[in-house]
Amino acid sequence: MMSVRYLPLWITAALLCLMFGIGGWQFDGFASLIVVSNLFSDNAFLLIVALGMTLVIISGGIDLSVGAVIALSGVAASLLISQYQWHPLLAFALILPVAALFGALMGVLIHVYKLQPFIVTLAGMFLARGLATTLSEESVAIDHSFYDAIAEFGFVLPGGGWVGASTMIFIVLLLLVIVLMHYSRFGTYVYALGGNSQSAELMGVPVARTTIAIYVLSSVLAALAGIVFTFYTFSGYALAGVGMELDAIAAVVIGGTLLTGGSGFVIGTVLGVLLMGVIQTYIIFDGSLSSWWTKIVIGLLLFGFILLQKLLSRRTALTTAARSTAHG
């Protein structure tokens, strides 16, 4: 019984290993630390966004605004740095609290005004994307010594892989989120809300505070992802991160988190992003496969995982039903 909770996680991990094994068997240089470290550094921003999305989805909500928040924070950072000559750290210090405010606003709309997360965050997506385009329609390049330093910051792995600042930031954030979700009351409250928000309220969970904090965290992580994205591209662009929310949601589901909330693991989402990344790498290595297969394969993976979850939940529902009726 115990393993049922972890089953989707194991399947994702097994698929990841399998894909990696197939790639390594077929292509030279696939099974190398370079590929692994690239997986992390190329997907660092997606990994960071997906951390926040995991929180939101475990709580039973959804956040469609993250892709637009990435763009907004990227544009804001590059404008402040290039046009207004701010120091990058100062710019980040302004952007993150503003992102927190943005998330809080969505949380208030969802909790206080009982509006659906889907539609609220959709409006948030328009708002953030609209603000980004208003700030600048063109891509804004960043030229700052701090960015050069960031680009050089890191260390080389034995096989030639490179662990850069983005990867390190992600790993620190990952550890923080794991501690938050599994070793703090807040984390338990997030799971509680996703399990059954009415019961949670009856049991004394501070629903308002928790809901708002969840969306604040998601927006702040998305803004951080936007900043990390500028490390990657040395620019900010209002159309960056379009559709990123879908990638993040897909990664969360593939990572074994229930879209209905209440169950899932942050580490699963990381595996989900990596699996999607490995599929992409495989297609690039193969060369003859076209890029659209990524979308189709991810769609099929999603379908498989949703069916799996349906089966698992039906099985547990059946066993509890059988138990409860057998006793009556």
């Binding site: 297969w293 979308k295 189709i296």
Partner: peptide, 17 residues
């Protein structure tokens, strides 16, 4: 939301295919 998300993600791939 989930059921139609599948086709939203995979559908564009099918169109490209």
């Amino acid at each position: 939301i989930v059921a139609t998300l599948l086709l939203m993600v995979a559908g564009r791939g099918v169109a490209q295919l």
